[in-house]
Design a protein around this nucleic acid. Structure first.
Length: 274
DNA sequence: TCGCAGGTGGTCG
DNA sequence: CGACCACCTGCG
């Protein structure tokens, strides 16, 4: 009953690379290698083989309205890879490992919530927290594939909650950050740049960089988490805790495509450590 | 048991 | 300003 939409001749595209490079938390791999998830209020399933992407539960209009942009399909990643591949041997290997990575264009509010939750946390638990938050306080997005889907709670809903209301979600000390951030957004609106992001409780340099990259399309943002920090120390010889020098290195060597370079590096080192 | 997981905020010097 | 360190929670 759900409509399917098919796009052919899709290049530089791999669902696992896209959904498992740490930029999103609401997609689940199925047994057939397809991915099911939700974005912008629409639950769908994506299947990719032989350069053809099939999106299930998606009309042609929804594809052009949501998914074409979400998947960043208009961007020529081949050209970007050609530039980055000459940076160094590690980057070359990282690009080969994650050749189908794309930076998703995600909803800003969802990204803010997700990356506040991500701090000092692990991915399975981040995913669990986000799902519980949506189920408990979000609006229904309808049923699809035998389950009901939920959007994340709006700033309005979240700002009215008390810390105790969030205790079943097991966010720990992040609960107060989430409510404080929701209240801030209700008062001042969504932040527009890094400086405004840093005014939110629970948002420091690393989380702010993730939000500008994944939620504000700032492609030169270079978030440095423990993994990227590790690889830059091991490969580029920058002192372990010197994130400032790492930012300089990224700006100098990866330039305007720093965010994409970060995704290749992140995916690469995580794969090597599996 | 205890350290760690995609950090931040508070407190020192 | 830079260097600590506590912090919810769950897993190995």
């Amino acid at each position: 009953m759900g409509k399917k939409y098919k796009i052919e001749n899709v290049k530089d595209f791999n669902l696992r690379h896209i959904f498992d490079c740490g930029q999103c938390f609401r997609w689940q791999e199925e047994e057939d290698g397809s991915y099911t998830g939700i974005a912008f209020g629409k639950p769908v399933n994506m299947k990719f083989s032989d350069s053809t992407l099939v999106i299930d539960n998606c009309t042609e209009q929804e594809f052009h309205l949501i998914w074409e942009n979400y998947l960043d399909l208009h961007r020529d990643y081949g050209a970007i890879k050609k530039k980055l591949v000459n940076c160094d041997l590690t980057m070359k290997e990282a690009i080969e490992a994650g050749s189908g990575i794309r930076i998703l264009k995600q909803d800003l509010w969802e990204i803010i919530i997700s990356f506040i939750i991500s701090q000092n946390n692990n991915i399975p638990r981040i995913k669990g927290c986000i799902e519980k938050l949506a189920e408990s306080f979000g609006e229904s997005a309808g049923t699809y594939r035998d389950r009901e889907w939920f959007n994340l709670p709006t700033p309005e809903v979240l700002s009215d909650l008390a810390i105790e209301d969030l205790s079943p979600i097991k966010l720990g000390y992040r609960s107060k950050y989430l409510i404080g951030t929701a209240k801030h957004v209700m008062e001042y609106g969504l932040p527009q740049d890094e400086e405004e992001l840093l005014a939110l409780p629970g948002v420091g340099p690393k989380v702010a960089n993730c939000i500008t990259l994944f939620g504000m399309r700032k492609m030169d943002s270079f978030p440095i988490d423990v993994w990227v920090q590790r690889v830059m120390n091991e490969v580029y010889g920058i002192e372990e805790n010197d994130r400032k020098s790492m930012q300089c290195y990224a700006k100098e060597h990866f330039g305007e495509w720093g965010g994409i370079a970060q995704q290749y590096l992140f995916y690469y080192i995580r794969e090597k450590n599996k």
